[in-house]
Amino acid sequence: MNRLHRFFALLALWTLLAPVGMLVSLSIGSGWSYPRLLPDRIDLLPWRVFFASRDGIVTALLHSTMMSLLVSASSTLLGLVAGRSLRKHASLWLRVIAYIPFGVSPMVIGTCLYDLEVHLGVAGRMMGVLMAQFIFAFGFSTVLFCELWNTRTDRLESLVIELGGSRWSIWRHAIWPYAHRLILVSLLQTALYSWLDYGLISVLGGGNVPSITLTLYSYIREGSVNQAAQSGLVLMLPPVVGFAVSMSLLRPRHDGEKTN
């Protein structure tokens, strides 16, 4: 019986994974005329173009990477501190504000932020996009770290103080061992958020800030199926690896302290 269950579960997931197979097959050929199931020619053209051209995609990749790193480092650092204070001031409205990035569409927020950024003179520039992405990533990490502080960390902290520890040793001995996994997860997730963002960068970047998501969209709009599939795979790779890593970090541990 158990084997049957496992079989069905695997079957369901394989069906969901079939699209990846299609992406791969499209990305290794060129053309896809109607009744054919596979591309017209299997010639690896999109990948050759990708590795040959040094201008468009590579710039976009570098931009995306740089923005991810900046956004993730800054928002994780500040989120760690903000999450701590959010738990201490547990008013409902403050929490609602902190949770906004989780649910509210970046597109709508971006539209509203656009006018503000025009006044600040950062609209259509990388700074403007970074600011908006930071706001969202900061919200994520704040909420993530808000869950970290509980009575257990409080007790650990007071233990360190009682043993004569300084402020630094509180962070070193009470918080770090407890938080380092979550810090890594936060770094990964915020980096991925920035990497995958299309809404904010297209509204606030105004087409002047290149990114790999914008490249993908321009391919989709042009109807270059093979190129779109290929850049889609490039876009997908870091998130897939990232999620695999953070999932193994957040694997259900059976010590009952993970509250979600």
Binding site: L13, L17, L196, A228, G232, M236, P239, V240
Partner: peptide, 23 residues
């Protein structure tokens, strides 16, 4: 299973849309 879920999870929404369109 974990690998497969991460692949789906890591798939950007734009790719979901693109794939559904192509299918």
């Amino acid at each position: 299973m974990m690998t497969m879920v991460s692949v789906l999870l890591g798939m950007p929404v734009a790719i979901h849309a693109f794939v559904v369109y192509q299918i």
